[in-house]
Design a protein around this nucleic acid. Sequence first.
DNA 1: CTGTTAGCGCATTCAT
DNA 2: ATGAATGCGCTAACAG
Lengths: 343, 343
Amino acid sequence: MSVTLKDVAEAAQVSISTASRALGGGGLASAQTQQRLTRIARELGYRPNPIARGLKTGQSRLIGLLIHNLTNASFQVIAEVVQARLKALDYQMLLCIAGDDPQQERDTLATLADHRVDGLIVVPTGKNGAQLTALDAGDVPIVCMIRRDEDTNLETVLADDPQGAYVGTRYLIGLGHRRIALVVGRQDTTSGRERLAGYNRALREAGIAPDEALIHIGHFEPETGAVACRKLLDLAERPSAIFVANHESVLGVLQVTAERGLTIPDDLSLLCYEDTPWFAWHRPAISIVDSGARDLANLAVDRLLHRIEARAVRADGAREYRVGARLVTRDSCRALPACEPKA
Amino acid sequence: MSVTLKDVAEAAQVSISTASRALGGGGLASAQTQQRLTRIARELGYRPNPIARGLKTGQSRLIGLLIHNLTNASFQVIAEVVQARLKALDYQMLLCIAGDDPQQERDTLATLADHRVDGLIVVPTGKNGAQLTALDAGDVPIVCMIRRDEDTNLETVLADDPQGAYVGTRYLIGLGHRRIALVVGRQDTTSGRERLAGYNRALREAGIAPDEALIHIGHFEPETGAVACRKLLDLAERPSAIFVANHESVLGVLQVTAERGLTIPDDLSLLCYEDTPWFAWHRPAISIVDSGARDLANLAVDRLLHRIEARAVRADGAREYRVGARLVTRDSCRALPACEPKA
DNA sequence: CTGTTAGCGCATTCAT
DNA sequence: ATGAATGCGCTAACAG
């Protein structure tokens, strides 16, 4: 059905291997034959069969991306960026969604390995470190992102969440806020822990006593934000600002504030973590700490490609990279009148 | 490095072909050997190599999904559903994003064909009908979705946009609205045309004279909604309701109404097309016509799988499927007091 | 620089 | 029911 190397070779009256070399581009053939074969191949509409090539070379031109979902805005951006970058390099992306579930992650990794992916970008659950390490040690370069799998020593690209949360909190403090609530994700995740840490550090440095009642740790769901927000607004001493460091929770927080008739930022300042297109369109436009999903994805691709090229033995020290967070101020935070803003 | 069929065969003291048959499951081996080989394979951790198998069988266990982006909520759902369904059937999804660009679509289709995908689900741009037809006629079953490529006769799964737009418009009419604006997508798309048609039909049936000034045709971007909304609100005779049938435009519409201090639904009723998670969390919760992205995706997968199984000659009549739209009323539309609601 | 040969891992035909 | 042999399309030694 489809035209093979053999067809091209016959048409050109050369051996299959000559055809292979001429088209393979390694310069292993005379410029003449190279041009001639290229032309004939084009005329015949020859397209190399990656499967056959893969069987021989052990490579597939396939790269796996394993993420938790496509609801989270960061994952959407990551998937788009990774696929765009890879396409330009003539790789194809196998997108796998494993819902933060260790069992699914395990199965998916096995299947991806079966398919001989040339590399893997993974947002790990943290429960399959051994498997990841084995794959990487084997033949599949792996780059982790967003979360660190504590059981591994793999190359990892992370957001600088300690810094991001610190910068965000400091911004609110600078605006004069003293009672700053934090809604943050599960503490068994890198981001959950680090954002809480950054928040605490900023408070400490500002000499603000920490208040457990202002901190709500929850899941990555809108409902978490609703529950947290109700709890916070029912406090005797309400917070004047809420830092929603758990992206998915924003929806719940916004809903509850609307239901209670609170105006943002007049009655309550709101700062969120991770951008999503509608934050900028929302009125008031929502200020954020941008964790840099796009740059994170680009860096992960860079690192992975590097690992793939440098088929060399990986030095035992797998590096960890951090992409700095950026504060993007829009209109959802206001300065408290009674205090002179600092910094 | 990895354990092959040969290893299993040797360990079991049988020939490679026996091993292949025993594990292949076709019942071509005695129940005894079958069990024994299965056990040994498991013990050795044997996993068949899809690339080798693919070279032999001409199949890859790969299925391509070609969509425009991951920003649109429907595409997100489609990608998630397709990948989940396929994974369960031991297929892998090659996700390709071609941004509604014919050139990219062309290249991507070629690459996907190179990789010998076993099937393809495509949201077509409409400019590469010949290529799609050729692929489908060749060896790659194709199912189109969301949009119809007029130059082809491929199996196509569409939303019932004429009905959806009709139902939505009728709902607003029933609420007593007479000046109903429509923001809708480009007319060179299936959904753009059909939603406009459905809207017009509902108006006509209700005996409401169409008003060109109330119809805004634009691109699939938030900005379209902003432009449209400003234009509509500046009209001498303002609409009492806006039907935003162009999903991406909602952001712009919401922004402009907020800036003008309009309360929804008191000052203006708002009905949107296609659901997205935050519509339900938004206050007021936004009423929608749900085009059924999830069911659309499931049906597309069903049809594709069917085509793949039935390797038979496709009857020349490729069928078109429609998934009905559903009105989901929440809180963004109100009944006009002066009129008794009908139907 | 080019042709010949071998083999990647597996499914399948043909014998037995 | 099983074994031996063949080839999918391509790359990579190895010769010449």
